[in-house]
Design a protein around this nucleic acid. Structure first.
Length: 276
DNA sequence: AGCCAGGAAGAAT
DNA sequence: ATTCTTCATGGC
């Protein structure tokens, strides 16, 4: 058991960071959230003027939550007086998590053409069936466990047509040298990811951003398309992504996440308001 | 009830 | 090199 505290600032908010769609293994608990990441677990408790983080490895989670990046400086450099400023104000406290590469590969294959609540369920069932027993939870499975599971297993947990992708990628990943992948530049690493069956441009960019800490990417999904449908009508997603990386450079990934969270969350809030 | 979801592969054009 | 179709599943 390990533990550390974090003074609150406007530039880290646990709810925005967890609810912005970048990870799938977390759940609200009394007074905060519980997070599972690879073979690690943490509880982040809101104590009013600080967060109390109880976990198995403080060093792991200090890096995981990306407390070394200067989000205030990034945001001030991006202010445009328009939608991006509005989105940053809305998601002021989002941090891009430094997630496990393997976990992001499989999680974002599951994510394609799928709803976030369903993605969570599928990943949870995969972990429950194949992950190492860590006591009160199960770790994300190892590559070997995933590779031995078989396509029928992935179909049985509700992965649908993605079951074949998961099976093939698991077996392919057994021969990958992750250390070597870390040395590649973003473009080369994207090509390696997209060479695998079931990983296209958007899923590759999510893996690059969330699993490899590459911020010079701009995943374009259905929500980002809605953000830009007026500015770039009819533009294909991959072209839009390339354009936005050129526009926002090394901060593209942050911009994408602020816009995604803003668009997607505001939509659900509008729905809720209509009902009441 | 039907629409749609953090898309991608394969076929058709 | 671009568009069109198909692909399982279930939350809403």
């Amino acid at each position: 058991m390990d533990r550390f505290q974090l003074e609150k600032t406007p530039y880290f908010d646990i709810t925005a960071t967890l609810e912005c769609g970048q990870l799938f293994r977390f759940a609200p608990i009394d007074g905060g959230y519980r997070v599972h990441a690879a073979s690690h677990a943490a509880e982040v408790l809101d104590k009013g003027d600080f967060y109390d983080i109880i976990c198995d490895d403080s060093e792991y989670f200090k890096r995981y939550f990306d407390f070394d990046t200067d989000y205030a400086a990034i945001q001030s450099s991006l202010e445009d007086g328009g939608m991006l400023s509005e989105a940053m104000a809305f998601g002021r406290g989002i941090h891009i998590l430094r997630q496990d590469p393997i976990e992001t590969v499989f999680s974002f294959i599951v994510s394609q053409n799928n709803h976030i609540p369903r993605i969570k369920g599928i990943i949870e069932r995969i972990c429950d069936a194949l992950g190492e027993d860590m006591g009160d939870y199960r770790a994300f499975p190892t590559i070997d466990a995933l590779a031995q599971a078989g396509e029928k297993f992935f179909a049985s947990v509700g992965a649908g047509y993605r079951a074949a992708y998961l099976d093939r990628v698991a077996k392919a990943m057994q021969t990958v040298d992750l250390g070597q992948w870390q040395q590649l530049d973003t473009e080369q690493l994207r090509a390696q990811l997209m060479a695998m069956h079931g990983i296209g441009r958007k899923v590759a960019d999510c893996i690059l951003l969330f699993g490899f800490g590459r911020f010079d990417v701009f995943p374009v999904d259905t929500w980002i398309k809605k953000v830009y449908e007026d500015s770039y009508p009819g533009m294909p997603a991959d072209k839009m992504s390339t354009l936005l990386v050129q526009k926002y450079g090394k901060y593209a990934g942050f911009v994408q996440q602020w816009l995604f969270y803003f668009k997607r969350t505001k939509k659900t809030m509008d729905k809720t308001n209509k009902l009441s």
